[in-house]
Design a protein around this nucleic acid. Structure first.
Lengths: 335, 335
DNA sequence: CTGAAAGCGCTTACAG
DNA sequence: CTGAAAGCGCTTACAG
């Protein structure tokens, strides 16, 4: 069924039907209502394909991401979907399987083929590379780590201030009396210093705490476990900050296996406040980041870019909040 | 840039370009190569929109699901994405916010508007309702719980045998010497008996174990925690099977708070084998389900339906595997 | 093996 | 306020 069928049934030309479904003002009220009634009656739905081809606009957004299952990524996706659905935008997903330049470009092409806007999650090398490689002219929004310097208005980016969050978590542990805080990082997205690392380091420095040797990190509990084993072997370690809650899970497990009590002997704090973290034994002190809000903000920004409505300002979306639970406490030798 | 530009540059008609990009056989090799070279040189990409409009086919699939972040859902999604990308299909997502009939139908319409196939994850009332409400003629594949009876060939469904999995997990606990096994269910998707519940019950029955009173379940750790508190209060409880690992997390936490040791006093087993489960303290005995494989199978089936190639047979995708870890052991009074 | 015509279902100026 | 024409970039028969 096409607008011609509707036109015939409503006894108008198909252009008038087009005007009605596009909310064009210059249609007599009586005509509009007749057409609307006919559309309802016939169950007509405009072909999004034909609309996209004829108009050159597509009301769709594709998310480019290296991962769809990790808590942060999945929740950003959820926020984007929510906002997209609210705006009647179709949502597509393209996964960046590797950070390889060729395959990243291939994924961008595939995403661009859909004709809609792009949201790139740039938390890892693949995402960072993708965000850089998007050709000019394509509407794109980046979900990024805290930038080192404020990005220009030509960079529609959103982020949560994870540098400040790492700073706060580190300060929390130091304030409990720990001499210093070890850090198990998530993989850095670029060659520079990751914001979480930077925040942790800054907090140590301003407290005059010595900066411990770097630890090898990762994304999941297995990496946390490996890091935890090494840290557990060092009796001087009394406080560990982890780049995410999955790492913290593995670290706590390793400490437990080594017979070191949490938080009695070692305090642990995570990052993200994943849904399970409050139910771990011991429940995990963590920094809550509003990933869903971040996703919604990313879509809102893209929507602004595409419809050229609002002026675009890159901005942090929310202030992360430290949630103190059982896993952090004073060091063993505290008074 | 269109096929006309390519045609002009290659000095052929645009129909010939169309033939070349569609792999039509009747093109002279020399012509084909010239056109291909021109396409490469100009960086031409066929408009998917125009292709879809003209051909009526769209090489895309939309996943309809009530959730995108829970481990099972997210991993199925990941499997579908992988397979779709491999087949050069675009992947869309539509979330069923409520199980309300009106909004479910609205989501189906939105998904159908894209012109591609549908995969519906029917693990919950919203998904089940959506799968039922898809109008005939639309290519659709269902990812379902183990069906009570084998579905007909007109129902392209995939599933893992979670009934057998629940049976096996229950038998494992009984074999350790427990008198019976309590079950904390995930919400059932329909009014009938859920397959996990059925498998658990069948195992109890065939072992002659008494069936305990039903426990209120849910999806997340909070629900597990609530259920766990109630179960912890009953000293007769020595073994608990949970409908997923998140529930188990909450249950273990509640047992811990009540001072009941796992597995010393109470054994706990989960379902899904989520990535963190092996790193919990105690590490969780769980049933591993191949959700990614399920997603890939769902896409393969849809691909078959859309291209009308393979004959469609609904089928279970893989055999779940029980992973025994620390959280399950003999009951306290065992010899 | 290759070209000319019609059409997919819309939108976008252009008339009136 | 409403209609007739051209076009978006392809595909699908139909000729030759």
């Amino acid at each position: 069924m096409s607008i011609r069928d509707v036109a015939a049934a409503a006894d108008v030309s198909y252009q008038t039907v087009s005007r009605v479904i596009n909310g064009h003002p210059s249609v007599r009220t009586a005509t509009r209502e007749r057409v609307l009634a006919t559309i309802e009656e016939l169950g007509f739905r405009r072909s999004v394909t034909a609309h996209a081809l004829a108009s050159g606009r597509s009301r769709s957004v594709t998310v480019l991401t290296a991962n769809t299952t990790h808590y942060g990524y999945a929740t950003i996706l959820q926020g984007i979907e929510e906002a997209a659905r609210g705006a009647s935008y179709a949502l597509g997903i393209g996964v960046l399987e590797t950070a390889d330049e060729r395959s990243v470009r291939a994924e961008i092409r595939r995403a661009a083929d859909t004709g809609g806007g792009l949201i790139v999650i740039a938390y890892d090398p693949a995402g960072v590379r993708a965000l850089r490689a998007v050709p000019a002219g394509l509407p794109v929004v980046g979900v990024v780590e805290t930038p080192a310097s404020p990005p220009g208005a030509d960079r529609p980016w959103v982020w949560t201030d994870d540098r400040a969050a790492a700073h706060e978590a580190t300060r929390h542990l130091l304030a409990l009396g720990h001499e210093t805080v070890h850090y198990v990082p998530i993989p850095s997205s670029t060659s520079g210093t990751a914001p979480r690392t930077a925040g942790w380091r800054a907090a140590l420095r301003s407290a005059g705490a010595p900066e411990p040797r770097r630890v090898q990190g990762g994304w999941g509990p297995a990496a946390g476990h490996a890091a935890g084993r090494r840290l557990a072997a060092d009796p001087a370690v009394t406080a560990i900050l982890c780049g995410n809650d999955d790492l913290a899970l593995g670290v706590i497990r390793a400490l437990h296996e080594a017979g070191r009590a949490v938080p009695g002997e070692v305090s642990v704090a995570g990052f993200d406040d994943a849904p399970g973290s409050a139910y771990l034994t011991s429940s995990l002190t963590s920094v809550r980041l509003d990933f869903a809000g971040l996703g919604r903000a990313a879509f809102a920004l893209l929507h602004g870019v595409v419809e050229q409505a609002a002026p675009i300002t890159p901005h942090p979306v929310s202030v992360p909040e430290l949630v103190v639970r059982e896993s952090s406490g004073p060091p063993p030798d505290a008074p």
